[in-house]
Amino acid sequence: MYETILYKVKNKVAYLTLNRPDSLNAFNEIMNKEIVQALKIAEKDPSVRALVIQGAGRAFCSGEDLKSLDKNIDLGEIIKKRYTPMLKQIASFSKPIIASVNGVAAGAGFSLALACDFRIVSDKATFIQAFINIGLVPDTGNLFYLPKLVGTAKAIELSILGEKITAGDAEKYGLVTKVVPFDELESETENFAEKLANKPTKAIELIKNLIRKSYETRLDEFLEYEAYSQKIAGSTEDFKEGVQSFVEKRKPVFQGR
């Protein structure tokens, strides 16, 4: 059982809820570890075909718990020991990950949302690139993802100004998948996640890998990888079902294999 998060699976979707509402779901060492554990379980569980990360209470996640942080500590070690493993686990997660952002996502909480594949955001949500305000640099992969989402100029602006970003602005910058009314966040998130959970899961994994590769490789290497990916996708049951349903003019039922 978990101490700082909740984990449940419903209709092929795993819900990972950050559950320290009193501290606006701030990260502590246990939470970093438990997120990794839960992600490993969701990765291995064939009945899970999408994962939602959400926050309990008012906030999504307020980042590192500064109150319990020793000021003389080596922050580099904290990153390596706690945040890097979490980020790597998210980055290598093969199934779609949705951040369902209810309220504030600040600091590493913002980074967490950026590392997900989708961001469904309530109209009350805010993002804060808070690091600069206490003299630090964005961490937890933040600046790996942010410029890719919003471009270099906007990434510099957000990171150096450290101002609050409203849901509406976030949408304008291309940071979010969809903004929904606060009261509908839960149902909208569920609908969206279940939609993803019924898509061809292997193809989703391969698409995520290909997009990642596009930043890492030369074109000829990428095209080789593309051919492998299509070979793999073409050997799935879901591909057969896709073609079959097309021929039969009906909706496909994908099994995620």
Binding site: N209, Y228, K231, S235
Partner: peptide, 10 residues
Amino acid sequence: VLPVEVLFDE
């Protein structure tokens, strides 16, 4: 380096 699914075939 190859995706594990195509390793043996390749």
